[in-house]
């Protein structure tokens, strides 16, 4: 297991296990509702043509986050 990195810095196509959300308030609750829960596995799917936001797969759903949000979510890279 590697040390946690920001979801923002994860490469397209990688899978990560969420470790922590450095967010508070409504956004935190929204992210939790969508499945961005520590312990869950997230896959980095694709960046928007303009570079941001990025689409992530979590719980079999595709959720797009901007870098402002994905920069606050930490996860550790899973071996492929």
């Amino acid at each position: 297991m590697s040390s946690p990195i920001r979801l923002l810095d994860a490469k397209t196509g990688t899978k990560l296990r969420l470790t922590k959300l450095e967010v508070t308030g409504v956004l935190r609750r929204r992210l939790l509702d969508l499945g961005f829960v520590p312990g869950n596995v997230v896959e980095v799917l694709q960046k928007s043509p303009l570079g941001d936001p990025t689409a992530f797969r979590v719980n079999n759903t595709t959720i797009a986050l901007r870098k402002e949000e994905s920069g606050l979510i930490f996860a550790e890279l899973l071996e492929v």
Partner: peptide, 8 residues
């Protein structure tokens, strides 16, 4: 904040 779901 922004979250957008891309449904299948």
């Amino acid at each position: 904040h922004y979250t957008l779901e891309l449904p299948p």
